[in-house]
C-alpha cells in the first residue's frame, strides 16, 4: 500500500519535472487528457459497479461553468478556490439527482443520466448571459498571487492537473481495495446478495455517484482553467460518450486505466484529426470496435498481462 502511494507520488513528480521541458502543445494536450482522466476515474467507480453513466458531461460542464462564472462574478482568480467551488457545486447537484438515479440500472441509468446532462445543455445553449452556444472566455487563473504568463502560461493548469491526478489517483487506488470499493463489484455481480448481507445497494451507488460527480467537476474546472474557453458542448451527450470511450479504452480494472485511456484518446484524436480531418471520427469508431472485440478490459489489461507474466 505504501509502495503504491510512493509510486503514484513519484510518477506525479516526474510528470511535473517533465512539464518544465515540454513543448507548449504537449503540455496543453496532457492537461486536457489528465482532466478527462479525472472525470473517467469517477466513471470507473460507477462502471465497476456495473453502471455506465452517459451523462458525466453534466458535472464536467458544470464544474467548468462554475470556474468560469465564479471567476467573472466574484472577481477571484484563485485557482484552488475556484476548483473547490466547482467540486462543491457538483456534489450538491449530484446529491439531489443521485437520489433519483440510484434507483436505476443498466440502460435506464445510462439514458437517465444522459437526459440530465442534456437538460443542462439545453439550458446553457439558451442562456445568453453565458454566451449561449458559443460559451465564453475564462479569465487566466492565479495561484497564490502568481499569474503565469507567456511560456509558463499553460504550466499552471498542467501542474494543477498533475497534482489533482496524484491525489485522486491515490484515493481511487486505495478506494478500490476498501470495503466500499469491493462493494461496487458486489453490486455489479449480485444486488440481492448485497442486500441480504446487510448493505444498502442504493446507498453504495449513491456514494459512488457523488464521488464520480466530484471528480468530474474537478476535471471540468481544470479544463476551463487550461483551455480558457468553455461552451455548452461540454454537457452534450457526445462528450459523455467520449468519457465512456476513454474508460473502455484504458480499462476499468485499475486506477491507471483512465489516465492511460485519456492520454491515448487525446493523442489518437489529435493525430487522427491532423492526418485526415474528415475521417477522425471513423478512426475513433473503429478503435472502439477493436477494443470491444479484442481488448474488452482495455489497454491496461495489456500491461497486466506483461507484468503478471500472463500469456498474450
Amino acid at each position: 500500500m505504501k509502495y503504491a502511494t510512493t509510486m503514484i507520488v513519484g510518477a506525479g513528480i516526474a510528470l511535473l519535472a517533465a512539464g518544465l521541458f515540454m513543448p507548449g502543445w504537449l503540455t496543453f494536450l496532457l492537461t486536457l487528457a489528465f482532466a478527462k482522466g479525472l472525470v473517467v476515474m469517477g466513471l470507473l467507480l460507477l462502471m465497476r459497479a456495473g453502471l455506465v453513466s452517459f451523462g458525466q458531461g453534466l458535472y464536467y460542464c458544470l464544474g467548468a461553468y462554475c470556474v468560469g462564472i465564479a471567476g467573472d462574478y466574484f472577481e477571484t482568480q484563485n485557482a484552488l478556490l475556484l476548483l473547490l467551488l466547482a467540486i462543491v457545486v457538483c456534489v450538491a447537484l449530484a446529491a439531489v439527482i443521485g437520489l433519483l438515479l440510484c434507483r436505476y440500472r443498466d440502460i435506464f441509468f445510462a439514458m437517465f443520466s444522459m437526459a440530465f446532462s442534456m437538460i443542462l445543455y439545453g439550458v446553457l445553449v439558451k442562456s445568453s448571459a453565458f454566451g449561449s452556444s458559443d460559451g465564453f472566455n475564462v479569465k487566466p487563473p492565479l495561484l497564490f498571487g502568481w499569474t503565469p504568463t507567456g511560456e509558463s502560461g499553460p504550466f499552471l493548469a498542467y501542474g494543477l492537473a498533475v497534482v489533482a491526478l496524484v491525489g485522486v489517483g491515490i484515493f481511487v487506488w486505495r478506494y478500490l481495495r476498501s470495503p466500499m470499493g469491493y462493494a461496487g463489484e458486489a453490486v455489479r455481480e449480485n444486488e440481492i446478495r448485497v442486500e441480504y448481507l446487510g448493505a444498502s445497494v442504493r446507498r453504495i451507488i449513491y456514494t459512488k455517484y457523488l464521488l464520480a460527480a466530484a471528480m468530474a467537476g474537478l476535471g471540468g474546472g481544470i479544463t476551463a482553467l487550461a483551455a480558457g474557453h468553455i461552451d455548452p458542448e461540454m454537457a452534450y451527450w457526445t462528450t459523455s460518450g467520449e468519457f465512456v470511450f476513454i474508460a473502455l479504452m484504458g480499462g476499468v480494472g485499475h486506477a491507471a486505466g483512465p489516465v492511460i485511456g485519456a492520454v491515448l484518446f487525446e493523442l489518437l484524436r489529435t493525430y487522427a484529426f491532423q492526418i485526415s480531418p474528415y475521417t477522425w471520427q471513423m478512426i475513433l469508431g473503429i478503435a472502439l470496435l477493436v477494443i470491444i472485440l479484442y481488448l474488452p478490459k482495455g489497454v491496461w489489461s495489456l500491461v497486466e498481462r506483461v507484468t503478471k507474466g500472463k500469456p498474450l
Partner: peptide, 10 residues
C-alpha cells in the same frame, strides 16, 4: 450501446 456508438462515429 457502445458498439452502436462506435458505428455512429463511423
Amino acid at each position: 450501446i457502445l458498439v452502436t456508438y462506435a458505428i455512429l462515429l463511423i
